[in-house]
Nucleic acid binder design. Structure first.
Lengths: 178, 178
DNA sequence: GTCTATACAAAGATAGAC
DNA sequence: GTCTATCTTTGTATAGAC
């Protein structure tokens, strides 16, 4: 006989939100092993018990956070495309510039990429998630773009797409420092 | 009046060697923050005091290890070049295959690349060291190769070299999982 | 110069009050 | 459902014997 509201009275979504926000800061700055639960709860303004009621342990909190970020970044990139009507050379230059600028002005995203790569040996599902959510959509888009623009004379659209995406990500996560 | 031998009686190089070997295992497997000094000394068969007599702290041990590995890998790659007399297309395919195979059969090197990228935000000098010792020599070599083979019709040898190296490293450290 | 034993701090996780 | 207080383990680093 409980009404609808009582059925919802479980874990408050607001607290979950602030926990994840605090966790993001701490994990991005120090990596998985370097992150401290104490710092996360301090930043979130909740107690440890509140964290451990939602997440089994540190690893569960970490993976939950990363998966959430993967989805957000995915949708973000989709909105950012430069106009498709331009000449291919112009479009591709803008596309590349935009990706690099985006990461450059979004230091959290740079830290995220680096962390994913660094932890992907110990959290394989995490690396796969990112391939699925971030790299794959970009590669698929470019593949189709290349395939529908024969004037570019690209023998293999998939190779071209993987090359461009790989070069851009690598250039920003490894070659440059800040 | 001390003879030459007594002047050398400082820290035994053999112990330094086994410490670094144990440290390599542990750091590569768990990253910087995840590595445990206890595990390192256990693997090396020495005491903690012996470690701390040589290295000021964990970070000093870490950076010393990475710099040593950077030098070793640098020299290793130099010896591996496929025959330069081949047709450019053949040579480049072999070069790429060899780099990928090398990392694939050298899981420690893969772990090292991932760790460098993951820690490069917190240890910037470490990322720079690797650019200098590993990426730069490869890029320089390819640049010169491209410049001396005009039939490849590459407008910008440096861009081509960076693209190839970046794509190869990224493909192996991020896109694939194992 | 190297070891054993230990200091000291901090971590992750939980019990019990409200 | 959330907090305070605490348990237990484990970490880095060092003091002192040999």
């Amino acid at each position: 006989m409980s009404n609808v509201k009582s059925a919802e009275r479980e874990l408050s979504p607001e607290k979950t939100e602030v926990i994840l926000r605090g966790a993001m800061q701490e994990f991005l700055e120090h990596g998985y092993a370097g992150a401290r639960i104490d710092k996360i709860v301090a930043a979130a303004g909740v107690s440890k018990a509140t964290v451990y009621r939602r997440f089994a342990d540190k690893a569960a909190l970490f993976t939950a956070l990363i998966q959430r970020m993967a989805v957000k970044i995915h949708f973000f990139h989709q909105q950012e495309l430069p106009p498709l009507g331009e000449e291919p050379v112009v479009f591709l230059k803008r596309y590349a510039t935009q990706v690099l600028d985006h990461i450059t002005h979004n230091s959290q995203e740079l830290m995220l990429f680096r962390m994913i790569i660094g932890e992907s040996g110990r959290f394989p599902e995490l690396g796969q998630e990112f391939v699925r959510n971030i790299e794959k959509p970009n590669i698929d888009f470019l593949m189709q773009y290349f395939a529908t623009h024969p004037k570019l004379q690209l023998a293999d659209p998939e190779v071209a797409a993987r090359t461009l995406v790989g070069t851009l990500i690598h250039f920003r996560t490894y070659a440059l420092t800040n």
